[in-house]
Computed example of a mutant assay.
Amino acid sequence: MSNVTPPSSDIPPLRPQRANSARLHRALLGDTLPVRQYDLLTDDHPCRWYDPRETLRVRAWSRGMAFVGILLGVMIAVSFIGVVVITVGETIGGSGEPGLDIDVASLRGSSPMAVLSSIAELIAAVVAYLIVTLVMERRRPPVELSPRRAFGVIRGMIAAFVCIAVCIGVIAVFGGYRIVGFDPGYNPWADLLTLGFTAGIAEEIMMRGILLRLTEESLGSWGAVILSAFVFGIIHWSNPDGTLWGGIAIAIEAGLLFGAIYLATRSLWWCMGFHFMWNIAEGPIFGSIVSGTGEQGSWLVARWSGPDWLTGGSFGLEASIVPVIVLGGVAIALLIHLQRHGLMLDPIKQRKRWLGILD
């Protein structure tokens, strides 16, 4: 931390919350974090003094660059080790000698490298985030991953299942979705790894734990949630059956909603549980293609019929107009709720003015 003394000017009082609304918020989402008076940030951020002498370690851009560097380094290291292990296992197995029994491909029915890539991404994201938060930010534990808040995973999973089920139900009412069977032979393990744990944990760490949280320190909550939603949508455009509309749809219905959930809870547990169940309910349970990633196995065998604007076409449920309207509407309503109750952080210029740093 910098040795600079925080400004002592009077801070405008925080906008009061309506008592009933605040109780409802806590009941549904959990406790919210207060805004600190000396830097006007919540406790999921390190202490900031907004001073040129502030140490490089706590500046947002340096933490972001460190995260990316560590992420790439760990991914390369884990991938290299994985390739060596798989190669040695195949070599020993091919010689007829007892050795490593590695059948990674059976998890997904594709190349072992696809599974290895997911494992490497998952490990790298967790390691990079812990180094940034524990070493650079010196927050032990980081409040957004505090073990006592881990029950947020369950709340997030329940909320996500309800969201997906409602959207599926609306599409079914209009004739676009019908269950025609059940596949007891479906093997979920690969999808639990790639669609569930890797997407739910790694992507939430990168998108909400790093991108949204760090940019919020300068852009404020509105700027950060919009930027993170845009990036979240764009990265899904690159999927095998990705489309521009699919990317835009995900930015609205998922990027804004996941960001709003993080701002409302300040809990990555909540976001991880929500993202995990979002993908699992959408694909393995209800039988939709997930984000344009290709053919999807599932327990429920579904028949999708009707125009692409209703069913989502080859991109899957997320490209349907239904979740864009329903869940995008929920996201905007939640963001407005946070704004009305003083839970959206202002941009850095406004915070500096309140703190008396700017004239």
Results as ranks from 00 to 15, higher is better:
27 A>L: 08
28 L>S: 07
29 L>F: 15
29 L>E: 14
30 G>W: 06
30 G>C: 07
31 D>G: 10
31 D>K: 04
33 L>P: 12
33 L>D: 10
34 P>H: 09
34 P>N: 10
34 P>K: 07
36 R>H: 02
36 R>A: 09
36 R>G: 07
37 Q>C: 03
37 Q>L: 14
37 Q>D: 14
37 Q>T: 15
38 Y>I: 14
39 D>W: 06
39 D>C: 06
40 L>W: 12
40 L>G: 09
41 L>H: 04
42 T>A: 07
42 T>E: 13
43 D>C: 07
44 D>W: 11
44 D>E: 02
46 P>D: 03
46 P>F: 00
47 C>S: 12
48 R>Q: 13
48 R>P: 05
48 R>V: 13
50 Y>H: 06
50 Y>C: 10
51 D>G: 00
52 P>T: 08
52 P>W: 08
52 P>A: 09
54 E>N: 10
55 T>S: 10
56 L>A: 08
56 L>Q: 06
57 R>M: 11
58 V>R: 02
59 R>F: 07
59 R>W: 04
60 A>N: 06
60 A>Y: 10
61 W>V: 12
63 R>F: 04
64 G>K: 03
64 G>H: 00
64 G>W: 00
64 G>A: 01
66 A>R: 03
67 F>G: 02
67 F>H: 06
68 V>W: 05
68 V>D: 03
68 V>S: 05
70 I>V: 13
72 L>E: 13
73 G>C: 02
74 V>M: 02
74 V>Y: 00
76 I>A: 10
77 A>Q: 08
77 A>R: 11
78 V>S: 01
78 V>Q: 03
78 V>E: 07
78 V>K: 05
79 S>H: 00
79 S>M: 12
80 F>E: 09
80 F>L: 15
80 F>G: 13
82 G>P: 01
83 V>M: 13
84 V>T: 15
84 V>M: 14
84 V>E: 12
84 V>Y: 05
85 V>D: 02
86 I>M: 12
87 T>F: 13
87 T>G: 15
87 T>I: 08
88 V>D: 01
88 V>I: 13
88 V>S: 00
90 E>C: 00
90 E>N: 13
91 T>M: 02
92 I>L: 14
93 G>Q: 08
99 G>N: 11
100 L>Y: 00
